[in-house]
């Protein structure tokens, strides 16, 4: 096999670069209590992701820009932010897909306390997650082998196992913006994952938790959560299934 020629590829590599403006919502409590929009112009390949642009700004232009990211590949769920008015993962959003001709706005997710720049306090979000008991609950003696489950039983809750707890859904929910006491879509999705698991035995208990005044009945079915989910989980459908389970078990 012939060795590929490199020089042509290198010549075209920088030719695709564009100049894009990133309008980032900045807040630094150690300097001022004011929130400001700051524009950064950078030269970047439009096939790169928004996260790469943020890195470029942080590393080359302004080291004080603060944001969360861990794996940078859409698995850890750290870098959910509001890009051009929609909740997305910065590491899964290509610059070419969000019209780089206009300034691209980047904000922290809404409904949670902004600590600095794009970093928010996730504690209320995780509190709601903990409140639905997101772990397997069983009775009786521990089996000597795996807890087996048919493929159909596994399929029942397959969609809601994909959640990465990035908070894109919960922070896109208008009910959550106005009242953080609401459990929020992410907590309900993670309850759904165990309620419909044939191996779990605390379904009733979780349904009772979500029957609360801040539980599933506060959902207004606006579908913001389904649109926001970077993993493509049908969040609103999962919430409706929990509502149906609550009604059919008692009627």
């Amino acid at each position: 096999m012939a060795t590929p020629v490199m020089d042509k590829a290198q010549a075209t590599a920088t030719a695709d670069y564009i100049t894009a403006t990133f309008r980032i919502r900045r807040f630094n409590p150690e300097e001022s209590d004011a929130v400001i929009w700051e524009d950064f112009q950078i030269t970047i390949d439009p096939k790169e992701r928004v996260l790469d642009a943020l890195h470029k700004i942080k590393w080359d232009t302004d080291g004080t820009l603060t944001f969360r990211r861990s794996c940078a590949h859409g698995i850890c769920g750290s870098d959910a932010m509001r890009i051009n008015g929609r909740n997305r993962l910065a590491c899964k959003t290509l610059i070419k897909d969000i019209n780089p001709d206009k300034p691209i706005t980047v904000e922290p997710i809404k409904g949670l306390t902004v600590l600095k720049d794009l970093v928010v306090d996730m504690e209320p979000f995780f509190q709601a997650f903990r409140d639905v008991m997101p772990f397997l609950v069983t009775e009786g003696n521990e089996p000597t082998r795996e807890r087996l489950q048919s493929a159909e039983d596994r399929e029942r809750f397959d969609d809601t196992t994909k959640c990465i707890l990035c908070a894109a859904c919960t922070s896109s929910c208008p009910v959550f913006w106005n009242d953080g006491q609401y459990f929020g879509p992410a907590a309900i999705v993670n309850a759904h994952r165990f309620i419909f698991d044939s191996r779990d035995e605390a379904g009733e208990q979780r349904l009772e938790i979500l029957n609360d005044k801040d539980g599933v009945w506060r959902c207004r079915t606006t579908f913001n959560c389904t649109d926001a989910c970077p993993r493509g989980i049908e969040v609103t459908k999962a919430i409706q299934e929990v509502k149906r389970a609550l009604i059919t078990r008692r009627f």
Partner: peptide, 24 residues
């Protein structure tokens, strides 16, 4: 500077389930 907190947020002390089916 003080951070702007949302009007109501969930904490460990948030009451859990009144035990009524009123909302349903």
């Amino acid at each position: 500077a003080p951070v702007i907190e949302p009007p109501r947020k969930r904490t460990k002390k948030t009451p859990k389930g009144g035990g009524t089916n009123f909302e349903m």
